[in-house]
Each structure stands twice: as structure tokens, then as C-alpha cells.
Computed example of a mutant assay.
Amino acid sequence: MAFDYVSVEEAIGRGGLRMVVVGGIPSPWGEAAKGILHIKGIDWTAVRLAYDSETLKQWAGQRSGPVAIYEGERPRDRWDDILLLAERLAPEPPLLPRDPADRALAFGLAHEICGEGGLGWSRRLQLVHMGLAQAGGFPAPVAKYLGRKYGHRPETGAAAGGRVVELLGMLASRLKVQRDAGSPFYLGNALTAVDVYGAAFMGMFVPLPEAQCAMDPVTRKVFETRDAATEAALDSILLEHRDRIYADWLELPLLL
């Protein structure tokens, strides 16, 4: 599903669904939201996040992304709120199971990927911690900014790597169980939002090739930073799943 980038002023004047996204960087939260809208065939207008735009802050309520704004409704900045909005706007194809127990499991798995303390959150803190220690990761000025924004402390930064390893292991184990049961998906026998999140967040460890995701070389180097424990936990099944989901369900190349 194609989308256009417009100015914040033009977006405010439009109806329908608008979404503020981080520009130039494959932020997995934003890329997953784009993927969900693509799968559901939802038309939307894109606005690149401008940190110095007071107009954008007043409209979206923050300087962050993604933030989805539908018509005159409240801005939605949480991954689950954006997913539920998409489910409401386009119930088919569903990306959440209809069975309540499976639905609860889908939300639990998605939280462990997208939520506070989850894979993306912990990976970001890991890269901040590395950057502050001048051991790779984010450049020091970026690491300091992100550290303040997302609550980095020496103890949380030091623990982030272990959490990353734990979650990568859990996700790989689940995919192997599913594979042995004859399913290529994280849950059941159909695509769910968990598959979209799992695919998008692998970019924080192994970015898509340049032809599929043109990005700043410095940012690519940041996302490619992996210590020995993270490298060992990054099972090939995780990247095989990522590549299959992008090939079969999502749009390439990424439009950042």
C-alpha cells in the first residue's frame, strides 16, 4: 500500500489516517506499523518526525514516532493502540486471533517484542550502554539523548544485554516449535501481528540489505553492533522468518 510523505501542516488539513514516523531510520516500531497498514490495505498519509516543529508537537502531543492520528480522534503512540486502531479500520485480514486465549498469547508475545522492557526496548538500551562506554552502539551524543529519554542507568544498561539474549532465545525456540508443528508463523497457522513485529525488530540486529533499506552508514553500523552473547543468541531461524515475512507480506524496499 503506497503512501505519501507530506508536511505536518498539510497532514493536519487532511482527513483519514495520518501517522508521524521517524524519517531516514528504520525504526522497528514505525516499520511494523507501516507493515500492518500495508497488509490491511489502509490508506494513510506519512509525516516525518521533525524534532524542532512546535506545530507537530502540539498536533501529535509529543516529539516521537510512530504516532497515528485518525480523523479528529486522539493521537495513538503505543504499538498496541496503533494495532487495535488498524484492526478496527480494516477487520480483514485480521492480525489478531479471534480465540481469546490465542489473542492473549499474541498480545503477550508482541509485548515481549515491542513493549517496555521488551526486545526493542532492551536492544535500544544495550546500544545506548555500548555508546556511552565507547564500545560501539550509538554515537555518544545520540546515546546521551536516548539514555535520558528512555531511562538509561548504569544498572539498566548493564542488564539490557542479558534481557536481549533471553528474548532472542525465547523467540527462536517458539519458531522452532512452530516449525516442527508445520507452521511458519509465531502463532497458529496464520499470519498475525506478532510475525510483523518479529520481522521488523530483527532490523535492530541485522539490517536489511542496502537495496531493500537504504540508510545512513553510521546508523547501519550501529544496528550491526553485536557482542558475543547477542551474536550467539541470534539464531538463523529468526532471520529466515524475517526474510520470509518481508518477501511474502510486506513492502520492499522500505520507504524511509
Rank of each mutant, 00 (worst) to 15 (best):
G72T: 06
S64Q: 01
A106E: 05
E87A: 11
D80E: 13
L96M: 13
P97K: 05
G61P: 00
R78T: 14
A106H: 04
P66K: 10
L85C: 08
G61I: 04
P94M: 08
D77A: 13
P91M: 06
D102E: 15
P75Q: 07
V67K: 08
G65P: 02
S64M: 12
Q62F: 06
E92N: 06
I69A: 02
A86E: 05
R98M: 09
P94V: 12
E71I: 03
P75M: 14
P100T: 14
D77R: 13
L95G: 02
G61D: 01
R88E: 15
W79D: 02
P100N: 08
E71M: 01
E87H: 09
Q62N: 13
I69N: 02
A106S: 03
A68Y: 01
Q62I: 09
R88V: 04
G72S: 15
L84T: 12
R98V: 12
E71F: 03
D80Q: 06
D81Q: 14
A104E: 08
E73R: 09
W79G: 02
A86T: 12
E71T: 02
P75V: 13
L89M: 11
E87D: 15
P66I: 07
P100V: 11
P91F: 03
S64I: 04
D102A: 13
Y70N: 13
P91H: 05
P93N: 11
A68Q: 04
R74E: 15
G72C: 04
E71D: 14
A86V: 08
A101V: 15
P94L: 09
E71S: 04
A68T: 08
D102F: 01
Q62A: 15
L105W: 03
P97C: 10
L95D: 10
D80W: 08
D80H: 08
P93Y: 13
P91V: 08
L83E: 06
L83W: 13
I69P: 03
D81F: 00
R88F: 03
R63V: 13
L89Q: 12
D81R: 04
D77P: 00
L96I: 15
S64A: 10
G65M: 11
P97T: 09
V67F: 07
I69V: 15
P94Y: 09
E87N: 10
W79Q: 12
S64V: 02
P91A: 09
L85H: 09
R76V: 14
D99V: 06
A104G: 09
Y70E: 03
P100M: 07
A104L: 15
R74F: 07
L83G: 10
P75K: 11
R74Y: 03
D81L: 02
W79M: 04
P66G: 10
R76S: 06
R98E: 15
V67D: 09
D77F: 14
P93F: 11
L95I: 07
P93G: 06
P94G: 08
E73W: 03
Y70F: 15
P94F: 12
D102Y: 02
